[in-house]
Write a protein that binds this DNA or RNA. Structure first.
Lengths: 342, 342
DNA sequence: CTGAAAGCGCTTACAG
DNA sequence: CTGAAAGCGCTTACAG
């Protein structure tokens, strides 16, 4: 038992210590079948004693697998994204995969679609968060040599996980309608393309349709862009309040814009839920403290679920699929019966 | 120019295409000196044409470097941590390093200190965020075979980056004192050990000392644990308001606890800044929307700076050092002159 | 400035 | 069930 050479133990050290070949060590440690129980025990013991861990670079080079997955998102620091990433991380950490994270600026997105990404040769699979690919892009993704899962968009050429934004926005609309609101505004975001599916577009359309059911109009002037930021929401709300007939109820397409909306109300000396009702989207952890009514989406679960889908695909199970995660209404103090109706 | 074999191009393909040896390709592509300009140009051209990228696993195995750094933090999803991680990521992405992220639960922390971490053999360096190591732990870290940078704690055996929590809390105290507050409360967090440095302890002590300068007492009953969560802050604030002489000014040791404090005030029909003044710590993005006065710390910059320190150490520059990042007071609507004084 | 060759530490047919 | 040996795709002394 001479620990002759310096540095961490290698597979050769273990083989020598256990009196077997390196091939057997490799098999025993990775739970291959066809290793005698006694042999396996010897190997495990020696490995433990020498504190052996396989050098991942050598293992990956030899096997061709990277044991790494890549994740791309337009912005990594938003609450939404970090929550998704946390969910993805949980699953892959447990499965023994490393996670490589990158920002999906437009260039990175196009490189991804054409396979020229920096993930090339480095990952076994990819998760795309809110990177609008469209079915066209999805077909390009499907042609890559690694499986891809898209989060936040309904796609069919590759695996995808999303929520029903149309239905979620309709939930918000019905809540305001049921409280008695008729003059209604929206604080939204810029849409990629008016006639296609994306978050702002689906939420606007879902909201508008639900209002239409009750013969309530949503004039274009009552839809303001808040850029999905707090301050954007604040500005948009001020703009809405300057309309000749300001809304009594407002739907903010994200809680963060909703926080800005509440801020604007405070700046105007108005009380949310009494003077103006506000409903957000997400259920951001701060929404509860702000008393913001919202449409809750299970963000962490979306990340976890997406990771599981990719994991299955990495193991060669199943075929491309779309799955939908549930939304729910969370009523808090920021919505109430409008003045005119009370 | 026959692209004979399938799969991505290897260094051999490039060598053949450029009419040089693989050694030369390797040198040319990594900007080694002593490569003739003409040769380098040929190699670059061939590599570009074949869309060659070096297989990182092979490169790492051969060179012994991992080109990866590890980051460990107790909780990955807090705003503070994700902001630090974003800063670290920026720097290392640019420097061509991968970032491996892990949760520093107590076990992981001890494994890290003893070198038994899952980062072993996989990273060239480590960043620890808010993993209280103490000088004892720091000495263990210094003995590891990779450089370590600790964020959030002042240490001397290894590199560290932190803020002056004592001074920051004193800033908060002086602000309340100057407004005229005399009955003051604190919403804090559990301390690791009363007589050592850590965030809650330093902030409590700094706050208390600054009050003492003006002969203002801070009885233990006026310090409530909010566990650094929104809801904890809310509960703690309710408890403070049940005291026989409730405070007119409150210092919350984090903005998130501050949000809970504001929530509690709203639940009691009290107006922040008028009925009770509240000051937080961090400058969380929502703090502005909530009108929360706070002590700002440059979180993203802390991450970026810590990464740079590690980068220098990886290049063998400099010696262990502690650096302090600046704090500043941001006054908003949640603090004002107390009733009694107005 | 450049090349031939060894070696990094594993995995995996292949043969037994 | 086990071993000898080739090979994964690079990097890096060493020699020239």
């Amino acid at each position: 038992m001479i620990d002759s050479h310096p540095g961490p133990a290698t597979i050769d050290d273990v083989a020598k210590a256990a009196g077997v070949s390196t091939a057997t060590v490799s098999r025993a440690l990775r739970n291959h079948p066809y290793v005698a129980d006694a042999t396996r025990a010897k190997v495990m013991e020696a490995a433990a004693r020498l504190r052996y861990v396989a050098n991942p670079n050598a293992a990956r080079l030899a096997s061709g697998a990277t044991s790494t997955v890549g994740l791309l998102a337009p912005v990594l620091t938003s609450w939404y994204t970090s929550e998704v990433v946390a969910g993805v991380e949980e699953v892959f950490a447990e499965a023994g995969y490393d996670l490589l994270i990158g920002t999906a600026d437009p260039k990175a997105r196009d490189r991804m679609l054409s396979g020229e990404t920096r993930f090339r040769q480095r990952v076994d699979g990819v998760i795309l968060v809110d990177v609008m690919c469209r079915e066209v892009g999805a077909r390009q993704l499907a042609a890559l040599d690694v499986p891809v899962v898209v989060l936040g968009e309904e796609l069919h050429a590759v695996d995808s996980v999303s929520v029903d934004n149309v239905a979620g926005a309709a939930m918000a609309a019905r809540h305001l309608i049921e409280l008695g609101h008729r003059r209604i505004g929206v604080v939204g975001g810029h849409s990629y393309a008016e006639d296609e599916h994306d978050v702002p577009n689906d939420r606007t359309n879902g909201f508008r349709s639900a209002l239409a059911t009750e013969d309530i109009e949503l004039p274009d002037a009552s839809v303001c862009d808040g850029g999905f930021t707090i301050d954007g929401g604040r500005r948009a709300m001020h703009a809405l309040m300057e309309l000749p007939h300001p809304p009594t109820g407002v739907f903010a397409m994200s809680d963060e814009m909703g926080f800005g909306v509440l801020q604007a109300l405070r700046e105007r000396g108005l009380v949310p839920g009494r003077d103006v009702s506000v409903i957000g989207f997400d259920d951001h952890p701060v929404a509860e403290a702000m008393g913001l009514t919202t449409v809750r989406q299970p963000v962490r679960v979306i990340g976890r679920f997406g990771a599981q889908v990719l994991l299955e695909r990495l193991e060669g199970i199943g075929t491309a699929h779309h799955r939908e995660m549930p939304l729910s209404l969370v009523v808090r103090a920021s919505t109430g019966v409008p003045h005119s109706a009370s």
